[in-house]
Design a protein around this nucleic acid. Structure first.
Length: 311
DNA sequence: TTCGGAATAT
DNA sequence: CATATTCCGA
C-alpha cells in the first residue's frame, strides 16, 4: 500500500470540499484602516505556486492622522514600537445577508433572553464585530420583529402600507424564528451551527466562539481572551497605488472542516493557517468585496465583506 | 466598572 | 435609511 494518488487530491479538492455551509466561517477580516493602509494583512496567500510570502514586517504607519493623544503625558505606556492603533474610526459595518444570517442564527440559539449584544457577538464569532455593531443591529432587528408582530394579525389590513421595501430584504434573507415573535427559548432547530454547547459555555464565561472554533481540533487554536474589543478590519482600501494591488481577499474554507478565524490579539498578530497543503485554487469559494458604494459620491468608506453564497 | 437598551446623531 | 454614537438605568 503506498502510493495512493497524490496528485489526485488536488484535483478532487473541490469535490472533496465539505459542505460549504459548514465552511462558511464568515472570515471577514477587518483590519484597521491604519493597518490596512500600512500593509496588507498576510492573509493566506493562495498562490498556487510555492511562492514564499515573507510577510511584510511591521509597517511604518503612514502618518496620517495622529494616533490621538490618549493620555499623552504621563509617560505611561511606553510601548516601544507597537502599533496601538487604538482610537481609530472604523468604517461603517455593512450587514450583509450572510452576516445577518449569522446574527439571526446566533440570536435564535441564544434565545431572546440571552440574546444580548455581547453574547451574540461572541457567538457570531465574527472577527471585527463589536458589541456596538451588534447592539445597533439588534435594535433594528427588534424593531423589525415588533413590526412584524403587529402586522401579523391586524386583520390583514396591510392596506395601511406594509411596505415591503428592499429594506426587508436583508431581514427576509434570514428566517425569523417564530419563537421570536411569540417568545420562547431557543429551540435547537437550526440547519447549521451545531455548537449548541458552546452557548452554555458562553453564558458561563466568555469563552466565546474561539473555543468553539478550537473545538474542531486541528491546526492551532490560539485561544485568546478577547476581553476587550479586538480590532481588525476588512480589507478595503488597498489601492494599487504603488506597489502591488495584491491579494486583498481572504480565503475561506480550507480543506477540512476547521474554522480558522484570524484573531488579532491586542497587537497585530494575525494567525495564519499553517495550511500544510496549498491553498485552494480559488474556485470554490468566491467572495465579493464590495467596497465603496459611492452612490452619492462621497468619501464613504464602507467596509463590506463577504462572499457570495446563498443560503 | 461594564453591559444592555433606547434615544439621538451622522 | 442604515449605522454609529451617546445617554441612562441596572
Amino acid at each position: 500500500m503506498r502510493e495512493e494518488e497524490e496528485p489526485s487530491w488536488f484535483a478532487r479538492w473541490e469535490e472533496q470540499l465539505p459542505s460549504p455551509d459548514e465552511l462558511m466561517p464568515l472570515s471577514q477580516t477587518l483590519i484597521t484602516p491604519d493597518l490596512a493602509l500600512a500593509f496588507d494583512i498576510p492573509t493566506t496567500h493562495q498562490h498556487p505556486n510555492p511562492s514564499p510570502n515573507p510577510l511584510p514586517p511591521v509597517p511604518h504607519q503612514s502618518d496620517f492622522e495622529s494616533p490621538d493623544l490618549t493620555g499623552g503625558g504621563g509617560g505611561a505606556t511606553a510601548n516601544g514600537g507597537d502599533e496601538p492603533a487604538r482610537t481609530l474610526k472604523r468604517p461603517r459595518l455593512v450587514w450583509t445577508p450572510q452576516l445577518h444570517k449569522r446574527f439571526v442564527d446566533a440570536v435564535a440559539h441564544l434565545g431572546i433572553k440571552n440574546a444580548v449584544p455581547k453574547t451574540i457577538m461572541q457567538l457570531m464569532s465574527v472577527d471585527g464585530l463589536t458589541r456596538e455593531n451588534v447592539a445597533s443591529h439588534l435594535q433594528k432587528y427588534r424593531l423589525y420583529l415588533k413590526r412584524m408582530q403587529g402586522l401579523s394579525s391586524s386583520g390583514g389590513g396591510p392596506a395601511s402600507g406594509v411596505s415591503h421595501s428592499a429594506e426587508d430584504q436583508l431581514f427576509a434573507s434570514a428566517p425569523v424564528p417564530h419563537h421570536f415573535l411569540t417568545r420562547g427559548p431557543a429551540t435547537a432547530a437550526d440547519p447549521f451551527m451545531s455548537y449548541a454547547p458552546a452557548v452554555a459555555a458562553l453564558q458561563h464565561h466568555q469563552m466565546a466562539a474561539a473555543a468553539v472554533a478550537a473545538h474542531q481540533h486541528q491546526y492551532y487554536h490560539q485561544q485568546q481572551q478577547q476581553q476587550q474589543q479586538q480590532r481588525h478590519l476588512g480589507h478595503f482600501g488597498s489601492p494599487p497605488a504603488n506597489g502591488f494591488a495584491d491579494h486583498g481577499f481572504l480565503t475561506r474554507a480550507v480543506g477540512q472542516p476547521g474554522l480558522h478565524r484570524m484573531v488579532g490579539p491586542g497587537g497585530v498578530g494575525i494567525v495564519q493557517p499553517p495550511a500544510p497543503a496549498p491553498a485552494p485554487p480559488s474556485t470554490a469559494g468566491s467572495y465579493v468585496e464590495d467596497l465603496e458604494s459611492g452612490t452619492g459620491g462621497g468619501n464613504r468608506r464602507v467596509l463590506t465583506l463577504f462572499p457570495t453564497n446563498e443560503d
